[in-house]
Computed example of a mutant assay.
Amino acid sequence: MQITSTTTPQVLVPGTNAGNATAVDGTSLGLNGENAATATPVTPTPTSAAPLRRGLSNWDQPLQNDISGAQQALDFLEQSAAQLRNLKTDLSARLANRQRADGALEARVRQFSNSWRNRSSASGGTLDAQLKFSTSGSNTSFTIRGFNLANLRNGGREVVALSVGGGQNVRSVVLEPGLSDEQIAARFDEALAPAGIRVRLNDDGQLEFSTAEGQWANVRDTISVQGGGIRFPTGQLNRVKAEALPAEVDPDHWQVTDFEGIRTTLAQVVQSLSKVEQAIASVHQALARASARVQSAVAAAASSSGMEQMAQNFVTNTKQPGYQSLLSIMAALAGISRERVRSLLSLR
């Protein structure tokens, strides 16, 4: 048997026709079989070809999403922090020199305001208005008039009906004497969770409601309540007012038309910069936790169970007709030389 030695396999990336197919260096597709066997590190070359689904990407897609979301949030926050530092410098200089604002300063405030208005999309939906980071999506936190714990603790037993979105989607919460604040929050949370609303005790010990940012407008305009005449009126469901919590950064209200406005805006910019820097530290912590999970995943990959998983993934891929199967086989065969085969056969 004769095996022709090859150094780097060439693979055709499928195009619309044979003429459009592109020859790609096998290593750019992760085809590093020889190097993998000899534990020699290889850095894949980025390519537009369909990536080989193997390794960590097969095991922990949520982990990859967490890392990607954290990096996107950091990019947005660090750019925002840089803008705020520049704005702080300009505002301070105007006050020190007793110079009135001009078009350039107003334009810089407007530029930051426009950038901050795109917070949700620019951060990949990972940062809410309170600068809380979450890879599950940004939320709007709000309060509901009449739903304060002082009011909810007092009085006898009462069944409170809640409706969100209108129609027949009504949820009930039983309030009774002796409930703790945590129990009250838990009962509202359980009742409203199916409607996409979560309830918790905030740092001030008060009820805080939250919903997906994209759902906020509907929740705000359609939430209704009906009680038994103790804490809430009887009869039909009555619309209640829901108010979003103030945003941590609110550049739309910054004014630089006079010295007093510049002074006030400077204080708000300094405060906003501090909150953005705190958010950056928080996201860095989330990224560090994700990195720790990466290390655990890599360690698991080196275990026998990890190798079994990789073998099973290979078997599954090669049974599927098409380009994915070709990539899996080429990855396994890449870099196998005549000398390597001879040395293995000599062990028989």
Score class of each variant (00 low, 15 high):
294 V>L: 14
263 R>M: 04
192 L>N: 08
257 T>R: 13
24 V>I: 14
91 L>F: 05
291 S>V: 09
320 Q>D: 06
309 Q>A: 15
233 P>W: 12
20 N>Q: 14
160 V>S: 08
341 V>R: 00
147 F>E: 02
199 V>H: 13
103 G>P: 00
93 A>W: 10
125 G>M: 05
134 S>G: 00
283 V>S: 05
74 L>Q: 09
101 A>H: 10
29 L>M: 12
226 Q>A: 04
20 N>F: 06
130 Q>M: 07
303 S>N: 06
39 A>M: 09
26 G>T: 06
193 A>D: 01
153 R>T: 07
217 A>Y: 02
318 T>I: 13
219 V>S: 04
170 V>A: 01
142 F>P: 00
214 G>D: 06
169 N>I: 15
226 Q>D: 06
271 Q>N: 10
283 V>K: 06
32 N>F: 00
69 G>R: 06
183 Q>H: 07
269 V>P: 08
234 T>C: 02
226 Q>H: 07
5 S>D: 08
115 S>H: 12
301 A>H: 11
25 D>G: 01
97 N>C: 02
126 T>V: 10
142 F>Y: 03
120 S>T: 10
183 Q>E: 13
115 S>K: 10
225 V>M: 03
297 A>H: 06
133 F>T: 00
262 I>S: 11
128 D>G: 02
148 N>P: 04
231 R>K: 09
238 N>Q: 15
204 D>A: 12
4 T>V: 13
305 S>E: 15
89 T>V: 12
304 S>Y: 09
150 A>C: 02
250 D>C: 02
197 I>K: 04
221 D>E: 15
289 R>H: 07
225 V>D: 05
271 Q>M: 10
284 H>S: 10
33 G>F: 00
87 L>D: 13
251 P>L: 08
228 G>Y: 04
190 E>W: 03
120 S>E: 14
262 I>P: 03
233 P>G: 09
95 L>D: 05
238 N>Y: 11
214 G>A: 05
2 Q>N: 11
31 L>M: 09
136 S>H: 03
245 L>Q: 14
345 L>S: 04
227 G>S: 04
29 L>S: 03
96 A>W: 11
269 V>M: 07
251 P>T: 09
258 D>K: 07
212 A>W: 01
187 R>S: 12
301 A>F: 10
9 P>F: 04
315 V>K: 13
66 D>P: 01
267 A>D: 11
